[in-house]
């Protein structure tokens, strides 16, 4: 069945996305631990960080300067984008199969995701 092929492609895409983002997070994590391993940490009280950790442009800038927290956060943003990519792939897959109903269903899901993600731009 064509569905099976579509699902296999999407599955592989998801895995590749997760592994790549995990590598970026791990690289940032190693850097973070090398530089800060003996530092005292406490997360008992919440304090929202600055825009360099809360907006995509700030995160990318911080990562480009090879700051460990920026790298880790950039990897996490990539991870957040893997399900979005999966929905985009599903739209393309359903459209290729000529399945208009499910191409539209997938597109609606993408619009809802975009609405949320635009808050962090």
């Amino acid at each position: 069945m064509d569905d099976k092929r579509l699902e296999t492609i999407i599955g592989k895409l998801l895995r590749a996305g997760v592994l790549f983002s995990a590598l970026v997070v791990a690289a940032g994590g190693v850097l973070y631990l090398v530089l800060n391993h003996a530092a005292r940490v406490s997360f008992r009280t919440f304090a929202a960080g600055g825009p360099q950790m809360r907006t995509v442009s700030g995160i990318l800038q911080s990562a480009a300067h090879l700051r460990s927290e920026g790298l880790m956060q950039a990897g996490l943003v990539l991870l957040i984008l893997t399900p979005v990519a999966r929905v985009v792939m599903a739209i393309a897959g359903f459209a290729l199969e000529g399945d208009r109903l499910y191409a539209v269903v997938s597109f609606i899901v993408l619009v809802i995701l975009a609405f949320s993600l635009l808050h962090a731009v």
Partner: peptide
Amino acid sequence: AASAGLYLSRGYIDPRVA
């Protein structure tokens, strides 16, 4: 992923924990 954008913009996602 649908709530992650809102979480990120509020600072709930701290990379040292995540």
